[in-house]
């Protein structure tokens, strides 16, 4: 159920402004790929092109190819809604639906897919919450609002919501940036578990986090102010952190800029 993503020659624009330029890479199934780089280098923009969330912003568009096991996500007959059902996403700030209970939050995606039977929903809600390491904390208050949970719990609820629809890929856009260190650790443990079943792409500003959770790391940078972001290099995390091929990568990792 996990799939390989191949990106070639991808450019992303906001109106006339080019945000990322000419990105090509392959993301292997059942791996965690981390995107690192200074602010404004287009990591978040790029990750949002992978499930066609980028184009939701007025004026935004994408050139190039993103293939999921050979199928072009930007093909003319591809429905972006179907793409987003296949490729799940977790956002920077935990965003459970405030008007829904914990249960309904997890079930939201299934209900969109037309699952109505209570017993089916119950099973998936429990499985997803267990999968997100949250079940034991919330099993007695599934009917309570999701917004009453702590930030870390909310983020795990969002992960449960994302995996409830059994996506093939899970995109995480700085999932821990709004969380305290303990919650961050809980999410990182969860990522290690999830990678057995999903292809995971994670944007992070935390270098240690990238080193801890990812198998492969991609370093993004921009040539200068106002220039589009580019992929500098991608490789096994160990190698990127110990012996990167490009000097800028080494400088960034060592904290000499950015």
């Amino acid at each position: 159920m996990t799939k390989r993503i191949e990106i070639s020659g991808l450019n992303a624009y906001y109106g006339a402004n080019k945000a990322v330029e000419d990105i090509s890479m392959t993301i292997e199934p059942r791996t965690v790929t981390a995107f690192i780089g200074p602010s404004g280098c287009g990591k978040s923009t790029f990750i949002r092109t992978l499930n066609r969330m980028h184009e939701l912003i007025p004026g935004a568009r994408v050139e190039g190819r993103v293939q999921l096991d050979g199928q072009d996500l930007y093909g003319p007959e591809v429905d972006p809604v179907a793409v987003r059902r296949t490729i799940g996403m977790v956002f920077q700030r935990p965003n459970p639906f405030p008007t829904m209970s914990i249960y309904d939050n997890v079930a939201a995606g299934l209900k969109l897919n037309g699952v109505k039977k209570k017993s089916d929903l119950d099973a998936v809600v429990e499985r997803s919450l267990r999968g997100a390491n949250l079940w034991n904390e919330v099993k007695d208050r599934l009917g309570k609002p999701g917004s009453g949970l702590s930030g870390g719990q909310q983020q795990r609820l969002c992960i449960a919501r994302a995996i409830a629809v059994e996506p093939q890929v899970l995109l995480m856009d700085e999932p821990c940036s709004a969380l305290d260190p303990i919650s961050t650790l809980a999410i990182e443990d969860l990522i290690a578990l999830l990678k057995e079943r999903y292809t995971i792409v994670i944007v992070t500003h935390n270098m240690q986090q990238a080193a801890r959770v990812s198998d492969r790391t991609a370093f993004f940078n921009l040539a200068g102010p106002g220039q589009p972001g580019r992929l500098v290099e991608i490789g096994d995390t160990e190698k990127i952190f110990s012996a990167p091929e490009v000097e800028a990568t080494a400088d960034y990792i060592a904290g000499r800029f950015g």
Partner: peptide, 26 residues
């Protein structure tokens, strides 16, 4: 909040489903 609309869209909601899930309840 844009975040709630995006949450619905990222689950594979169409625009109307997004409105039903995120906008109208809010």
């Amino acid at each position: 909040p844009r975040a709630h609309e995006e949450a619905a869209l990222a689950l594979g909601a169409t625009r109307w489903e997004m409105i039903r899930t995120a906008v109208l309840p809010f």
